[in-house]
Design a binder for these strands. Structure first.
Lengths: 234, 234
DNA sequence: TAGCAAGTGTGAGCCAGCTCACATTCGCAC
DNA sequence: GTGCGAATGTGAGCTGGCTCACACTTGCTA
């Protein structure tokens, strides 16, 4: 089956380029990929939901995924927006409890997944891989802690500036951050309207440029200064 | 030196009873304890500060420690209150970056600490210990995610109820949670006065009893119901 | 046992950000 | 190109929770 071989090769190629897996011996990687599945999701599709059993480890191969929670009331909170190359679902996968959050495809995605039965014995035999998981979890903790820290802040200005700086530092291409105002509002926990008004104010000051589905940061330094202040002076 | 032996024995005894370390061979544990230091902190003392190098892993032997951030403006945010037996400072210790948060003794404490140079080589030779660290990090991530989730909620009632339930489930002795209203306010990110008013309302309904430095949960079910609602009905 | 610091209880006024209700603009699919 | 849905822009009230300002209580410690 030439098609199967092609798909297998694609998985192996993808993983052998991935910081998490690149140090694994090629033979072991091929073995692992035999058991790995890939699946496509269209925009808005549910990858997993809070409370599901966490028996698979997922790797985003293309597209982006929203990690968050949508309450019954319709209000939803976004913890993180993750893109190609990122692992998702690692918490529940690693500690065996149900999913902590929902994962929703934010754009058409292709996602690779490992079954726990296949992956876990492999993982436990590789201390180097365990160390990489530890690093990953630390990185996540830092991200979530920063997030928790800033939504504790009182004023919109600081929260929004901090979020833009944080997203910009991580995801921006030439200062352009692909995020809608609705998404910002769900990350920050304030209304879209308020976000919009603040963004416009910054556009008027020449700090930003707005477009449909994205924000372009023009004056990173000014934003960072606002993000650093506890009580804005203006 | 009989005193040194006694102190060594105390450390070994403490660790061999600790879920994180209990499976380690006694000989190795004794070896580890030779390098471990204990230190006492009085209430309010700084154990470490955000930005410090994270070159030690700490274990609380007695007392409690506040993990949080205090902003220049005086406003501070508490992420977690940890008690005897808990590890602290594990994130910076494990990934080598600076401390994410401040740790302040919340009551007189005794804290055991390992130097990274001694502990890390030991740790990396023990996959079982690595797995325990992974579990620990997952637990922390769940805690912080829950925290982030609830401070995203709009209304005080739900946030406070959720925090009380969460603290109660983890720390309560006969429904009694040792926490001041000031601390609750810093955990939840709302003013002490607002917290106080809501707590009194619940006392009037017979759900709680208040004391100096603690809250007694009388009707856990009612609180949990309030915590579950998105928009409280009255 | 008196004094003091920490913790708690309570009122009054104010204002940032919310909600509601639209108009407008963009970009994709057909 | 032409709908159409998604994203953005904007005004007008309203209000929950903040701030400020104090009194009261508790329990430690000197």
């Amino acid at each position: 089956m030439p098609q199967d071989t092609t798909r297998l090769d694609a998985k192996v190629a993808f993983l052998s380029d991935h910081p998490m897996f690149r140090d694994i011996a090629r033979g072991a990687l091929v073995q692992l990929c035999h058991y790995a599945k890939t699946r496509k999701y269209r925009k808005g599709a549910v990858v997993f939901s809070k409370g599901d059993p966490g028996d698979r480890l997922l790797v985003v191969m293309s597209g982006t995924v929203k990690i968050g929670i949508s309450a019954a009331s319709g209000r939803s909170t976004i913890f993180n927006l993750v893109g190609a190359g990122e692992l998702i679902g690692e918490i529940a996968f690693l500690d065996g409890s149900p999913r902590t959050a929902d994962a929703i495809a934010n754009a058409a995605c292709e996602i690779l997944s490992f079954d726990k039965r296949d992956f876990q014995p492999f993982m436990e035999s590789q201390p180097a891989l365990l160390l990489k998981f530890i690093d990953l979890l630390c990185r996540r903790l830092r991200w979530v802690s920063q997030h928790a820290e800033q939504i504790g802040l009182p004023d919109l200005q600081t929260r929004l500036a901090r979020t833009l700086v944080r997203l910009g530092d991580r995801d921006a291409v030439d200062g352009k951050v692909a995020v809608t105002q609705q998404e910002l509002s769900e990350m920050i926990g304030m209304s879209r309207e308020s976000i919009n008004r603040q963004l416009r104010a910054w556009v008027a000051q020449g700090w930003l440029r707005l477009g449909h589905g994205h924000v372009v940061v023009l004056d990173h330094a000014a934003l960072q200064a606002t993000a650093a202040e506890d009580a804005p002076a203006g």
